[in-house]
Design a protein around this nucleic acid. Structure first.
Length: 510
RNA sequence: GGCCCGUUCGUCUAGGGGUUAGGACGCAUCCCUUUCACGGAUGAAACACGGGUUCGAUUCCCGUACGGGCUACCA
């Protein structure tokens, strides 16, 4: 039987980066096994539904390159793939469970249960308490019928039989055993007619012929209920295999990574930025922070999984080939933003200049820079070993697009002297007519000029750098001069003279 | 509280009954470079603790501690 896996997020807001990792592992497993990767939207909670979240999920998957083979917006023979569109199906299956004696109608209101919970610390609906509650197990059949037809509010609960041992075989953790006495009678169908996660999940996984359930560790405790459901439906022979992923933890402190940690630690925890109703509900994304999707994928893949060996850099194809569920770690993984940065730097460094240019283009345009693709590629080449994020190209390297905003005054003061005025005017004259105006040609000419005039290379070159970039950091001087062109180079040389004289006077006066 | 899961350098991890416990991020030092980076080299840095089992445990078993998850008509 061919492998079918699903990524089943619920559209309650922006998709957490941990969700992206879950999608990634599902995707890798499907690809590697020649299987099918399905996107199912679990929107069974009407109250938590957030408009736009579904689109966000799809756009996120698209950005990181994890396109589903089937699912909402992607077609497939097992639809619909949005659970709210499958409402009638769940009711039918829930009633089937009631008919077979594996579930029952319960009439206790949430308020009534809440009161019980407050009175009895460990109160829960289970085999021990259901006899004292209002349901189709305790009420005469006729009354159940009359309550039902009277339109009274009810839910369907799973009837967990006590005294059983439920063995779950997890692909990552091995055998996990639960005692049915400890399990509560989970609500399967809610009062609004919608299923809970538990019912919808099992029905859909069965109907969609899911073979492997790869999901977060937070689902491990309820897997016992899921097994009971498969049994109740007599689907145990085709029950999917389970793999529960370790959680992604906060960078520091205790607990799992949460939405708020982004703001708290000054880093994104979502793939794309999200604009919520309020500023507090809005979050920055990896994409907007200037990450390449390949870097995010690589980083995420290694957060909780490693194939062994010393390789750190993996393309999606590499990951597909190397992936194995057995190599997924059991312990939670701390979200290490420093490592994410390193991956991004690596991917930017090795990216093609023309490709980088397409990424820089919108950033440059946002700043009002009007430049050619060729020029952007040149900038990419000059800066890519000096940046961490995409916006750094236009921010750190702004001087490749606009005049110097500020000079490193300390350095200028140190290197400048009145004689330099003449030197740089002459240098401008030497450089202006150079042809072709290329790095090597410039270097030869400038160095000859330095030698002929008996100047100190360190002084002239430093000042030249200051003239072109304003700072002592940056690409090789002659590369910058070549990129800027003769006109701009000369202009900046003159500008330096102005600045240098100013600084010198300041020193004299002081 | 109850149930379940986990624990190798600060972090992500490899490994596995006998190893100098390996790699990567970060950090430090040095080299390269008339800048900054990149790159290269080197270094500091770990098997949570206590019992077993064993000739021998970091590795297997049991406890303890610590961490995490679940405990909703949320997913």
């Amino acid at each position: 039987m061919s492998v079918r896996v699903r990524f089943a997020p619920s559209p309650t807001g922006a998709l957490h980066i941990g969700g992206v990792r879950t999608a990634l592992y599902n995707y890798l497993f499907a690809r590697q096994q020649g299987g099918t990767f399905i996107l199912r939207i679990e929107d069974t909670d009407q109250n938590r539904y957030v408009p736009g979240a579904e689109e966000y999920i799809v756009e996120s998957l698209r950005w990181v390159g994890l396109l589903p083979d089937e699912g909402v917006g992607f077609g497939g023979a097992f639809g619909p793939y949005r659970q709210s569109d499958r409402k009638a199906i769940y009711r039918e299956y829930a009633e089937r469970l009631v008919a077979s004696g594996h579930a029952y109608y319960a009439f206790d209101t949430p308020e009534a249960l809440e009161i019980r919970r407050n009175d009895e610390p460990n109160f829960t609906c289970n085999h021990a308490t259901r006899g004292g509650l209002v349901n189709s197990l305790t009420l005469p059949a006729a009354e159940v019928q009359s309550r039902l037809s009277a339109g009274e509010s009810w839910v369907i609960r799973l009837k967990v039989e006590p005294g059983q041992e439920i063995h779950v075989h997890d692909l990552i953790r091995g055998s996990v055993v639960f005692q049915s006495n400890e399990l509560d009678d989970k609500v399967l169908l809610k009062a609004d007619g919608m299923p809970t996660y538990h019912l919808a999940n099992i029905v859909d996984d069965h109907l969609m012929q899911i073979t492997h359930v790869i999901r977060g560790e937070e689902w491990l405790p309820s897997t016992a209920h899921h097994v009971l459901l498969y049994r109740g439906f007599c689907w145990e022979d085709t029950m999917p295999r389970f793999a529960h992923l370790p959680l992604i933890l906060k960078p520091v402190g205790n607990g799992k990574l949460s939405k708020r940690d982004g703001a708290k630690f000054g880093m994104p925890v979502f793939p794309l930025s999200w604009k919520g109703e309020t500023p507090e509900d809005s979050f920055p994304g990896f994409r907007e922070a200037g990450f390449l999707p390949e870097a995010v994928v690589n980083f995420l893949a290694l957060l909780g999984w490693h194939p062994g060996g010393d390789q750190e850099l993996f393309s999606l194809e590499d990951l597909t080939a190397a992936f194995s569920v057995e190599h997924i770690s059991k312990g939670g993984a701390r979200f290490d933003f420093e490592k994410a940065k390193w991956f991004n730097q690596k991917y930017i460094q090795s990216a093609d200049n023309a490709v980088l240019a397409t990424h820089i283009r919108p950033l440059a345009e946002a700043k009002g820079y009007r430049v050619s693709d060729d020029y952007l590629a040149v900038v990419a080449g000059l800066m890519k070993e000096r940046v961490t994020f995409l916006p750094d190209f236009v921010e750190v390297g702004y001087y490749l697009f606009e005049p110097i905003r500020e000079y490193d005054l300390e350095m200028l003061q140190k290197k400048w002297n009145p004689g330099m005025e003449q030197v740089f005017e002459s240098l401008a004259a030497v450089v202006a007519p150079l042809e072709p105006y290329e790095s090597g040609v410039l270097e030869t000419a400038v160095k000859a000029f330095i030698q002929e005039n008996g100047l100190k290379p360190g002084d002239v070159l430093s000042l030249l750098r200051l003239a072109l970039a304003g700072t002592m950091k940056g690409p090789a001087v002659f590369d910058m001069a070549a990129a800027l062109g003769p006109e701009e180079t000369v202009k900046r040389l003159h500008q330096l003279v102005v600045q240098g004289s100013k600084v010198h006077q300041g020193v004299e006066n002081a």
